[in-house]
Design a protein around this nucleic acid. Sequence first.
DNA 1: CTGAAAGCGCTTACAG
DNA 2: CTGAAAGCGCTTACAG
Lengths: 318, 318
Amino acid sequence: MVAERAGTSIATVSLVVNGKDRGRVSTANVARVRAAVDELGYVVDHAASSLARGSGDLVVLIAPDLSNPFFAEVIRGVRDTLGDRFQLVLSVTERGAQPGIADVRRFERLRPAGILVDAPAADQPMTASVPVVLLDAPGGADAVNYDLTAGVSALVSHLGAAGHRRIAYLDGTSRATTFALRRAMFEQACGDAGIAVSPVSASADLTIDAAATVAEQAVDAWLRDGATAVVAAADTLAYGVLRVAAARGIAVPGTLAVAGFDDLPSSSVTAPALTSVALPGADLGRAAALRLAAMLDGTELPAPALPTRLVPRASTGG
Amino acid sequence: MVAERAGTSIATVSLVVNGKDRGRVSTANVARVRAAVDELGYVVDHAASSLARGSGDLVVLIAPDLSNPFFAEVIRGVRDTLGDRFQLVLSVTERGAQPGIADVRRFERLRPAGILVDAPAADQPMTASVPVVLLDAPGGADAVNYDLTAGVSALVSHLGAAGHRRIAYLDGTSRATTFALRRAMFEQACGDAGIAVSPVSASADLTIDAAATVAEQAVDAWLRDGATAVVAAADTLAYGVLRVAAARGIAVPGTLAVAGFDDLPSSSVTAPALTSVALPGADLGRAAALRLAAMLDGTELPAPALPTRLVPRASTGG
DNA sequence: CTGAAAGCGCTTACAG
DNA sequence: CTGAAAGCGCTTACAG
């Protein structure tokens, strides 16, 4: 430990650097250590520190591939809430893959204070030697989730009011539980409202290109089946449909109304502007960070379900 | 070390786990260690390992706030190129801030194999005890950059050909060098083509909302000044202009043509589709990862400037 | 208030 | 091929 050129012992330096010097180190020594630290540009070795201490101040957030800008919002919420007490590091999966237990294992090695897992693959226990909180993982223990009820039922009654009696669904290929739930709730709400769900099923990766490729075929099938609207499991999927509709000259919403989930910032500037069930990503990140902090403090926090709402725009006739 | 219940010594386990057992450990022992590892779910402690070894297999990518989806592409390029040899972790700055030397210092503590810094703040030396490569940091040493020449001159001649003689520029508030360069090259190209750049200057954070707020005022000033087109330093900024134009009933491109930089995936579905100088993010990430790997192998790699090109769309009359 | 010492879990020469 | 031992840089009781 270089900084013992301050003329004090290693132990003293450690105390000062960690702010544990209150009434344990003379002010003279504190000053000398501080000076030495500044001069040498000393920074405590994280590996050694967390080895000695048992665990560090890292918080790991494991998220799916970021091609869905939704996750940027989640990350922002987490970072802003974690503050200076922890250092946030992110890991993203391969495109199209969901975070799984293998990712958690990989990051346990870093001895983080805790791990956050966003939109994990279904059916994986996700236990670890450190506290774990799941985001957007309906059904999981220790998870923070959206309450989709309000958003989905508003969407379906909005479409019903516009006269749609047969609606298609474009799903994500994602194996995250949240996608299964979106679909189930949509079908349930349609059933309740006496609206038919088109049996023509389609799904794509959560990128515009992938969705456009799928929509290329699916649009014809939907229209042939008599559907007058399509609901996509994510805004990025809906963008793919919009692109194909524009290329083909299919009127939106005239011939085919389109809606999505997420309400990405760019959904206000698409052609036409996209109707979407808003899932406030920053709120989700914030709630997850609070929950983790509470677990670390030993205070159990109730997990509130975050409210969702419909943002109606031109793609469904406003 | 728990796994010594395999009946061998700690050292033997270490060799096996690290794949250094070739001709140094009997096959019988290898098998027993493997079995014990599986049973116990053992995973090597990263802190202890990198402490003993001097440095780990982590590669840190420090990027600005992800509200610009451009960075998602960069990240994907880095991850795909790094492969299994390294473990990538990301860090993002506060919204609107550029990565600086402080961020690098913070992550040096983790003893990573190397650090990648995307769109760093200008004028910061950015030296560290581990290899560092900069992305999109024109002027920096050890940086991988775009060659904006082709893209910018194509953009300006495209606008010139469409009859624009006076063009406004919407800058980012970002202090990253790359933004200063975009502006400089744009003004240079305009000068060369005999096109005037509007003196009405405006800049905003790289989010649609921030850009829209700024555009609210700026659009009037641009039109009053006689500008017939606006070039934004990033697509997200251009989206803000599109939003305001749509709300105000200003025809795009009829009254005001709009173009951006990045060519985000969503730029193909905006109203109208956005003309943009394509900066292939995945290519940038890939080049940076290759360069870092080369530095770690001791082989110096020449830093090629990545080509850019114009993607003309409806927002400038196609 | 201060420092010598043990120990965190691993890796790596080194001697058998 | 195998194991005892030193050392990575820190933290934390513990004895002065």
